[in-house]
């Protein structure tokens, strides 16, 4: 079942087209990585999903309800964490949990305090005394404690230290395992590489790619390094077309492989009789950057 359905969604600000005919579906229980450089239209898409912006054309639906006209009903089961979360300066996490509980009409104090302990956040510190990362932690706690069906995260890890980022990854994977859906916006692939089932890349308001990570890996290049200790190597058989020879030094060859290693490739490498071989994992970053350019 599709939780999010976006059809020909466009948004313009005066002369600027921020989003251009976006079509996208997100299945329930999946984690979608929503990628793109700054200004690609990621935040505009999220704000359209949350009913904060009115579409210029097209429509977005969550749980089958229109995001603009049924925004408040949708948000009963949606939680959102913006990238640079601003919270009322005099609030503490405890006050925030209490007030959000009352506004949502759902008690999130106990699960919120539990999450605060897991993420090492003092529940009685004032927001004005918090760093960006600590504010982000509070935003994540307020979102996760509501146990939503859909979690929308807009570059949520800005300011978080690597330990908390790892903890967040675990929490999100558990959340998805339990049937939750995550819409994770980011401008860096590394942030979502080990998290998402599917990725979508936006550029200048247009959808550039919508694929699974496995498919993306097939398109990515791998580096192969062959080393010899003493003997000057010579080509044995012709170079398979999946391989490209980048450097050929005396005792070291550097090649690139497009796609996955196959028995033919392994056999060719064996025929070269190297003393040492290294094959890198698919270089998604390079491929990813090519979509950005």
């Amino acid at each position: 079942m599709n939780l999010i359905e976006i059809e020909n969604l466009s948004k313009s600000y005066r002369q600027t087209r921020a989003l251009n005919n976006l079509n996208l579906q997100v299945e329930e229980g999946k984690i979608l990585g929503f990628l793109g450089p700054n200004g690609a239209g990621k935040t505009t898409t999220i704000r359209l999903l949350l009913g904060l912006l009115k579409p210029t054309s097209g429509r977005a639906k969550i749980f089958g309800l229109n995001c603009w006209s049924h925004s408040s009903e949708i948000k009963i089961e949606v939680a959102y964490v913006p990238g640079d979360l601003r919270i009322y300066r005099r609030w503490t996490p405890r006050i925030a949990l209490n007030l959000v509980s009352k506004i949502r009409r759902k008690d999130i104090l106990a699960p919120g305090l539990e999450l605060a302990e897991q993420l090492n956040l003092n529940p009685d510190i004032k927001v004005r005394e918090m760093s960006l990362g600590t504010r982000q932690k509070l935003g994540l706690i307020l979102a996760l404690a509501t146990q939503p069906r859909l979690l929308i995260l807009d570059e949520p890890t800005s300011g978080l230290d690597p330990i908390v980022q790892d903890r967040l990854r675990e929490i999100l994977l558990n959340f998805a395992d339990e049937g939750g859906t995550v819409f994770f916006s980011s401008h860096t692939l590394s942030e979502i590489e080990n998290l998402c089932d599917r990725i979508t890349i936006l550029k200048e308001g247009n959808l550039v790619i919508d694929t699974t990570l496995a498919e993306l890996r097939k398109k990515a290049l791998r580096e192969i390094h062959l080393h010899w200790r003493h003997t000057q190597p010579k080509f044995q058989n012709t170079l398979p077309e999946e391989l490209d020879l980048l450097e050929q030094q005396d005792l070291h060859w550097k090649l690139t492989l497009k796609g996955e290693t196959s028995p033919e490739i392994m056999s060719w490498i064996h025929q070269q009789n190297p003393d040492d071989v290294s094959i890198s994992p698919p270089n998604l970053e390079t491929l990813f950057h090519s979509y950005y350019r």
């Binding site: 904060l52 925004s71 408040s72 959102y80 601003r86 949502r104």
Partner: peptide, 17 residues
């Protein structure tokens, strides 16, 4: 201006409310 409206309208409330 403060950006706190994102938190407020990210909750299940109607704008008129």
């Amino acid at each position: 201006d403060r950006g706190t409206i994102d938190l407020l309208l990210g909750l299940p409330v109607k704008r008129v409310q």
